[in-house]
């Protein structure tokens, strides 16, 4: 793995998100109430809504366009909706956000 420093945990509001631009499109980085972070594709598979602008609750996010709800852990759509968003490895070390760069590369190759 190659961990890329993408910023500070404090740059993301609690129960909020920011985006990271990558070659595979925008990645949304979420922060939960417990200060866990998750990185997923920013694009809702339904109509392309920007998930980083959704409301974060528990370990889920609700797409701002049509209220699809995704698990941030698995990337799976919740409830009746069927869909999947990519998830990326991310971790916090001494307050810095480290995103797995290899995953992004691999995804490009695939």
């Amino acid at each position: 793995m190659s961990w890329l420093d993408i910023g500070s945990l404090d740059d993301i509001p609690v129960l909020g998100a920011r985006i990271v631009k990558t070659a595979v499109g925008c990645v949304a980085v979420f922060r939960t109430a417990e200060d866990e972070v998750f990185a997923t594709s920013d694009r809702c598979p339904h109509k392309g809504g920007p998930l980083s602008e959704g409301i974060v609750h528990g370990k889920s996010v609700t797409c701002p366009l049509h209220n699809w709800v995704f698990s941030l852990e698995t990337g799976e759509a919740q409830g009746a909706d069927e869909g999947q968003i990519s998830t990326f490895a991310i971790k916090v070390e001494t307050g810095r956000l480290l995103l797995d760069g290899e995953a992004l590369q691999a995804r490009t190759a695939a």
């Binding site: 910023g7 985006i19 990271v20 070659a23 925008c26 760069g101």
Partner: peptide, 14 residues
């Protein structure tokens, strides 16, 4: 600044 992307990795990834 909060309206900007947190980071831009398009260069690194390429």
């Amino acid at each position: 600044p909060k309206f900007n992307p947190l980071a831009n990795l398009t260069l690194e990834a390429a």
